[in-house]
Every structure is written in C-alpha cells, then in structure tokens.
Design a protein around this nucleic acid. Sequence first.
DNA 1: CATATGTCCTGAGAGC
DNA 2: TGCTCTCAGGACATAT
Length: 278
Amino acid sequence: MPELPEVETMRRGILAIQGATVTHVEKVRCTRKPISIKPTISTIRRRIVGQQVKAVERIGKRVLIRFESDDRLVFEPRMTGLVLVSDPPSSAHLRFRIGFSSGIEEVFFWDRRGLGLIYLLTAKQLHERLGPDKLGPDALVVNGEDLHRIFGASKRPIKVALLDQKRIAGVGNLYASELLHLAGIHPAKMCHRITRQQWSTICEAMQTILQTAIEHEGSTLSDGTYRNALNDPGGYQNLHRVYDKENKTCSTCHNQTIERIVQAQRSTFFCKDCQSRA
DNA sequence: CATATGTCCTGAGAGC
DNA sequence: TGCTCTCAGGACATAT
C-alpha cells in the first residue's frame, strides 16, 4: 500500500547514495517467482555500473535513481514493495540489490507479494511512461483551482476520482479516506457537484494530510508490511482519523461511529456526521 | 474521449 | 489441527 508519503519516505531514506557510483547490481533469486525487472539484468548492469548517482527522485508512487547518463532506475513498490538500506525483513522476498561506492553500501528491493516492478528508462522513455500524458501533477504541488479544473467535470465520486493517477499522482486508498474526513466532504459526493470553495478545502486537507504523514514516515498497518529504509515502522497509523476504524467512535465528533463502504472494489471509511453530502 | 471492471500476487485471518 | 476460502489495493489491460 505504499502511497505518496511512504514512497517519499523511501526516497529520503536513500538520499545518501547521491554522488556515489554504482559498484554492482544483482537480481536476487528468491524461492518465489521473480518480479519483473526490465530490461535484462545484464543490460541494466552494462548501463549503470560505474555511473554516478545525480539525484534520487519521486514521481507519484515511484522512486527513481537518476544517473549522469540521464538514465533512471525506477522502483515501483505497488502493494508490498520496499526500498531498504538495511537487512530485509525476510530474505525469502528479497528481489534486487544495488551496491554503491560510498554513502550507502547497498540498497535492496524487497517485495512480499511480488507485484512491484523495477525498470531502467532513458530520458525519452521516462517521458513516454511517466510523463504528463500518463500521470497527473503531484498531489503536493497542485492548488484548489487546479483540482477544480482537473476534476470539476468528472462524473465520479470524489473518493474514486482521487485514486486516478492520470489526474493527480500520489493519493491512494488510505489517504483518500483520511483527507476527505479532514476536508469534511462525503466520499460519495460526485465531483461535478463540488464547489470551487470545496475544492480549495479538499486541496488544503490533502496537502496537510500528506505532509504530516511524510513527517511521520508513513503508515504501517496491522499487517506490518510497510517499513522505512531502515526497516523501522512508520508512525502515521497512530494519527489515522478513519482508515480501518469501522464501528469505532469518530475521534473528531466523539458522537458518530466510522462507517465502511465499498467504492470501485475498494474500502472507504468515513464519518457521516463530519462529512457532509452538501 | 471517460468510466468501469478484471487481473496479477501472497499471506493473514475466518470458518468449519 | 489443518484445510479452504476471502480479502487487502497498487497499476494496467480490456470492455463498455
């Protein structure tokens, strides 16, 4: 479930590789079916071993290592992928390792379910695969007017629309519920019925929630899968307002209990007193 | 074009 | 106890 705050935490966790050169790259043979790594590991090795790291970037829910050649190695964690600098939680699901000359000796990609991806892109391929035609602007840089322009004509419930990465990049299932509770907007409210003023409120809530979650290094749920680069759990789960709190008393109104509904096959949590349909 | 649905994958937890 | 079943939700392919 890594979303923007978790992926940003991963990015920050490996910043010390900046300026280092790549010493080795290994696809790890775990007992499971291997994850997708493209192009071949030998091609990746040829193109990045000896290259200096110029930057560690994030696009939506992906971490990218940019080299002096302008090639970028992309880590896409999807459901259970982790970018780690210390020993992985279990060696059974270790998928990939990359060594550096200084800063951090080795960075690991670990993925229990194996839905994650690793791929190397040229600058041109980056534009094709992760450019503005494929991905909306980052959730942290938009304003209320942007949201109104992007979503204003959409005939979908706001909660479902927020998950569409082509419109806004970075918001996932957990933070969509959280930010709508802070904004006081009902998750089933249709986008085209949301006012300019409400888009502004939603934008403010979105950025408050995401920034605070980054400060707490993301959310580690009860399954314990998500970890920061040092394999420590995040802290934002302790500040959750509604997510996974069905039937619990709302911590804001202390009156209503949190409800769970399903939208587009995903759980949504909300408080019907705090979140108006109007 | 926009929106909706099915698919991948593993392990935790429920129910019998 | 040990089996089977359901569910969790990232992104994308395919369907409407």
